[in-house]
Write a protein that binds this DNA or RNA. Sequence first.
DNA 1: CTTGATCCTCACGCTGGCGTGAGGTTTTAG
DNA 2: CTAAAACCTCACGCCAGCGTGAGGATCAAG
Lengths: 125, 125
Amino acid sequence: MRIGKLAERAGVSVRALRYYEEQRLVIADRSPSGHRQYPESAVERVKFIQLLYSAGLSSKAILHVLPFLDTLTATPQMTQRLKDQRDRIRTQIDDLTRAHDRLNDLISLASESEISPATCSASRG
Amino acid sequence: MRIGKLAERAGVSVRALRYYEEQRLVIADRSPSGHRQYPESAVERVKFIQLLYSAGLSSKAILHVLPFLDTLTATPQMTQRLKDQRDRIRTQIDDLTRAHDRLNDLISLASESEISPATCSASRG
DNA sequence: CTTGATCCTCACGCTGGCGTGAGGTTTTAG
DNA sequence: CTAAAACCTCACGCCAGCGTGAGGATCAAG
């Protein structure tokens, strides 16, 4: 499959795919004319990469995690890196949850302050 | 209180505080000589700003949310913005959770692949 | 009065994940 | 055969949240 199709199917831009290759996250065969050729499996791979990016991993961190996908065997070091990232994400989730709750508190206050005194008793029963 | 003390107490850099002022997130009085003067309340305000930054809000988004802290009254538009941000955070939490779970799956696989065949039956009962 | 800590205002640098041409080749549809 | 679409390689641009001097004023203590 060529780069345009992969981009479409994985939901990323062509530019992004070239960038991933630059970061060595994805390896592509080349046709005699130099066009990139991807296997079917690249779709899932790119989607996984996107998942990790959206979770805040850097290209470098992803690069350290990906080899496991290929070989399905991990060195203790790789396992540790996976755990480190997982823990970092958990921490981030906790931070976000705190912010989420704080915002929710504010929303409650805001909703009340919005309501005119006359309708207040009606809406709060 | 002056900027150094506020930075220390709020757990941010002096540079960051100047940046927040540039973004109009924090307003500071000035001494005759031009030094910034902050009230006690600035500590909590800055901590709250940090919370929102860590939740991925931009300066602009924070700027739209903060007036509520000062007035304790919200326009419907402000309430809506609060809700939008809360929803965005929730979405982000979901993304992170998915990544977290995927990584956990990988960690399970990795832990297995790490174990030598001889010890495998022992560790898996 | 002096010294060192703290403060001030520019203003450039950095990082990451791409966007976006420029200028040229290749593939594909008709 | 031709035109459009898709591809290629540079390579600069962007944004955000600061870090990090440069060069100078101000403050607190002895």
